[in-house]
């Protein structure tokens, strides 16, 4: 921690912009949890001391410019293909740490096949999946994760399950695949949950560093602008509505499974 002197008193800085972020201010809307998510990812990378080994994959959506904000090597790739690009890069550079940063349209709609197969192959990459139930960058269209009844610019009367199906539950879908090492769903709605999210992201990177398999953290995030809410109302909506449809928790934990196997072995 840095120490500075103010009016003769020495202070240590206990919270500041993480080193793995550039100085470029986030261009996200006020209150948008993309920033919060970027910040905790960078903190995890700082704490693990892997900044200069990281390769980031920026996807398409609001996070298309995420490469402006993370201070390590980055590539910006076609919509939905982040995990395929990460696969190719990781296979060539197994000592690099690969992170994809994808939204719900990118990962759960156009990139569903790439996502499922990267997970099933157990690619040693870490996927941060930001689920805000809407297409932010294109102006608030329906996402595969849009909640039932939620009004968007392409579901003006509210999402109707009969016509367009139900919100996609990606964490639940991926967790049973044997390539998955760590799958968790976290939320950004308050400080406690943000700290939990950070712990989950750290575990996800550890899964990659320890060569365990594919890891993904699904981050429930607000899009207050396209939800037509204030940031405070937005985080409240996550807490009250999003978490009801998308239950928080750890869906796959390879360490826990290994420990259970060990216990069974010892007992058996």
């Amino acid at each position: 921690m840095d120490v500075i002197t103010i009016e003769g008193t020495e202070y240590k800085v206990v919270a500041e912009r993480p080193k793995s972020l550039t100085d470029t201010p986030f261009t996200y809307c006020p209150g948008c949890n993309h920033g919060t998510t970027h910040k905790i990812i960078a903190e995890v990378i700082d704490e693990l001391g892997i900044q200069h080994r990281c390769i980031g994959i920026a996807s398409v959506g609001c996070s298309v410019f995420s490469y402006e904000f993370f201070d390590f090597d980055f590539i910006s790739v076609p919509h939905g293909r982040a995990l395929a690009v990460a696969t190719g890069a990781k296979r060539m550079r197994p000592d690099s740490v690969l992170m994809t940063y994808q939204g719900d349209g990118d990962l759960a709609a156009i990139g569903t096949a790439e996502t499922i197969h990267a997970c099933n192959r157990g690619e040693r990459v870490t996927c941060i999946f930001v689920n805000n139930a809407i297409y932010g960058m294109t102006g608030g269209q329906m996402a595969p994760t849009t909640l039932l009844g939620m009004k968007t610019t392409t579901s003006p009367l509210g999402r109707d399950a009969k016509r367009i199906g139900w919100p996609m539950k990606m964490s639940e879908m991926l967790a049973p695949l044997q390539g998955a090492a760590y799958i968790a769903r976290v939320s950004m709605h308050d400080a406690k949950h943000i700290l939990k999210a950070k712990a989950a992201i750290k575990k996800a990177f550890r899964a990659q560093l320890e060569d365990k398999g594919f890891s993904m953290v699904e981050v429930l995030s607000n899009c207050n602008v396209n939800w037509h809410m204030t940031p405070q109302e937005g985080v409240k909506f996550i807490e009250e509505q999003m978490t009801k449809n998308f239950p928080l928790g750890v869906y796959k934990d390879v360490w826990q499974e290994e420990a259970a196997k060990q216990t069974a072995k010892e007992e058996g």
Binding site: V3, I4, I6, T9, E10, Y11, K12, V13, V14, A15, E16, R17, P18, L21, P25, F26, Y28, P30, G31, C32, N33, H34, G35, T36, K39, D190, A191, I194, L195
Partner: peptide, 18 residues
């Protein structure tokens, strides 16, 4: 640090006396 944790723009620095 609660304020810094929830800040989406890393716009809050927290200091503690040494």
């Amino acid at each position: 640090r609660l304020c810094a944790i929830v800040c989406p723009d890393a716009a809050i620095r927290v200091y503690k006396e040494v």
